[in-house]
Design a protein around this nucleic acid. Structure first.
Length: 269
DNA sequence: AGTCACCTGATT
DNA sequence: AATCAGGTGACT
């Protein structure tokens, strides 16, 4: 489910619903989800702590506790992190649950169990995210910084956009949509793209993510979460064979880095 | 830089 | 039965 916009929506909802909550219990049925910690270890570390604040960093959700530690939650492909009203009624796909002293629980719900949770000291934060690039809405994500990282890379531009070191938050959908809007072919070598086109792509990335966050927050605040289908006007992703909304040419699918990339062969050169 | 493994469920 | 999935890390 989640790229940056969905993670942002999830984080905001947790911040609204569970800030200040106190953890009274833990449920960690899948060792791999919390490794290198053990269930007993994590249980001991979180019970009695309250959650001061939720924060998003890239596609990670951080839950800051009241003792100088934080939980780092990554949703990977299919995870969701949410408050349920009754800790006893967790879904069968709950891979971790933090029971709260008011009877609710904060749950990692993830059918594929690819999501991960780890606990860290605040002092380890910088080291933990050393390989994460700039937040797309931060002052560090300048056109010049983006152009520089592109011109340093021989990777196809689509691969670069999904590399969290160049900019954090884009995944398979929004990378493809950004390139469509910028009119850039996904297989173009990053360092061969002109400065003006990269400058335009930079602007579009910020715009695409802004629009996507707005729609994700609205979609996720309604009952049922994101389940109401599409909430972002997707032009190319998942639309192989359908007409391009701009020129009518058939959308194509190629494989890059083992993932599907969708693009318009006429609009994207 | 490309491939695969991690998991499970949906779709072809 | 095979393929695919909005991610990432560990391989070759």
């Amino acid at each position: 489910m989640p790229e940056l916009p969905e993670v942002e929506a999830v984080t905001r909802k947790l911040q609204a619903e569970a800030t200040g909550a106190r953890i009274s219990g833990g449920f960690f049925p899948r060792p791999v989800v919390i490794q290198p910690h053990t269930a007993a270890q994590l249980h001991k570390a979180v019970v009695g702590r309250s959650i001061d604040r939720f924060e998003r960093r890239g596609k990670n959700i951080l839950a800051h506790l009241d003792n100088g530690t934080f939980l780092r939650v990554h949703l990977r492909m299919t995870g969701n992190f949410l408050v349920i009203p009754d800790a006893r009624l967790r879904p069968v796909t709950a891979r971790a649950a933090f029971e709260l002293d008011d009877g609710r629980a904060v749950v990692l719900d993830d059918p594929r169990a690819l999501g991960r949770i780890t606990l860290h000291k605040e002092s380890e934060r910088d080291a933990l995210f050393a390989d994460l690039g700039p937040e797309p809405f931060s002052p560090e994500f300048t056109p010049e910084a983006f152009i520089a990282s592109a011109h340093r890379s021989a990777k196809p531009i689509k691969i670069l956009l999904m590399d969290q070191r160049a900019v954090t938050g884009l995944g398979n959908i929004y990378a493809a949509e950004s390139l469509f809007q910028a009119g850039i072919h996904p297989a173009r070598e990053s360092r061969g793209i002109s400065r003006p086109r990269l400058r335009e792509l930079h602007r579009i990335i910020v715009e695409v993510l802004t629009v996507a966050i707005d729609s994700a927050v609205v979609a996720y605040s309604t009952p049922g979460g994101f389940s109401e289908g599409e909430f972002f006007p997707v032009a190319v992703y998942g639309r192989e064979g359908e007409p391009c909304p701009r020129c009518g040419a058939k959308i194509r699918r190629i494989t890059q880095g083992g993932r599907s990339t969708y693009y318009c062969p006429r609009c994207q050169r």
